[in-house]
């Protein structure tokens, strides 16, 4: 734990210094995206790396958080924090509806069910034109205000977002070091084993789903108030797949891996700007190569043995 805290302090110090050194708002904006995606991956890595489940539908919860917050603030004039809470509530409810029946599903079936969920959300975003604005989306989402400070510039949003990433990272770390974390890690084994030791496997599986949905929804709300414009094309199946891909590439079940993975997700398109059309191709190859040669993810390159619960 201590090592992690040290790393946390160093890393976040560097992050918080960044906008002071690099003034270009475009690059600061890119890092805001890194922060937003990191929140999603931090949640997802608990679900996939610790509880050993799979979700190919996180873009769905990301969308629910974003659209709920966006719609409630533009159409109903509600304050943004209420929009965020509503988004969280709706996502938790939806993930409950997804998680409970999924308890009996294994591997591929679960993957498909979550994939199906994500796609349903996408279809609804496109089809429910009256509420969501359909394929063209909608805009004029108000900026957030934090303690009277209006978050309408990249740099302000940057600190706000990364402040939350820091908090979410700490919460995740706390969770993992606690009895909850142990129980979650025991879910990797065949169900009957933790069951025979009194672990309520069903509770923890649902819990992990709710946790991941919570994080994704919050990230979505941040996204909405940052972009001030939403359209269904940002919430595709491809995003869900890329999120899983990045967790896996970064290292399943490792909080730092989640940050790393989110970083790759954010920076690769920037680096590959000239090769924009080949982006997906490269992701695909990357994914396949990692699965074949480094199934524990990039993080396993650093330590000899992948330490768990780190």
């Amino acid at each position: 734990m201590r090592k992690d805290l040290k790393g946390l302090v160093i890393f976040f110090s560097l992050i918080f210094l960044f906008p002071l050194l690099v003034r270009n708002p475009y690059y600061i904006g890119v890092l805001v995206f890194w922060g937003i995606y990191s929140i999603i991956t931090l949640g997802l890595t608990i679900l996939m790396g610790y509880a050993g489940q799979i979700s190919l539908g996180q873009a769905g919860f990301f969308a629910v958080g974003a659209y709920t917050s966006g719609i409630l603030t533009t159409r109903f004039g509600l304050p943004p924090w209420l929009g965020i809470l509503a988004g969280l509530g709706l996502s938790l409810l939806l993930s409950l509806f997804l998680a409970l029946p999924s308890l009996k599903l294994k591997g591929h079936y679960l993957a498909m069910a979550t994939l199906g969920f994500g796609e349903i959300v996408h279809v609804v975003l496109n089809a429910w034109v009256g509420v969501t604005g359909g394929p063209s989306g909608f805009g004029e989402i108000p900026a957030l205000s934090f303690l009277g400070w209006k978050l309408d510039s990249e740099i302000r949003f940057f600190y706000f977002t990364w402040g939350w990433v820091f908090l979410f990272f700490l919460f995740s770390l706390s969770l993992l070091k606690s009895p909850y974390g142990r129980a979650l890690r025991s879910l990797h084994a065949e169900e009957r084993i933790p069951l025979s030791l009194g672990v309520n496997v069903y509770f923890y599986k649902v819990f992990a789903f709710l946790w991941a949905a919570f994080y994704a929804s919050f990230a979505g709300s941040l996204y909405a108030h940052f972009m001030t414009f939403l359209s269904p094309s940002s919430f595709t199946l491809i995003l869900s797949i890329l999120l899983v891909l990045m967790i896996v590439v970064g290292g399943l079940g490792n909080l730092w891996g989640a940050l790393l993975g989110a970083g790759i997700l954010t920076f690769l398109p920037e680096i590959l700007r000239t090769f924009e059309d080949f982006e997906m191709l490269i992701y695909g190859i990357f994914l396949i190569l990692i699965m074949i040669f480094l199934p524990r993810g990039l993080v396993s390159l650093r330590r000899g043995k992948v330490a768990t619960g780190d």
């Binding site: 142990r182 890690r185 025991s186 990797h188 084994a189 065949e190 084993i193 933790p194 768990t308 619960g309």
Partner: peptide, 8 residues
């Protein structure tokens, strides 16, 4: 068959 949690 002993089935410990290998990751713990």
């Amino acid at each position: 068959q002993p089935s410990p949690f290998e990751n713990l």
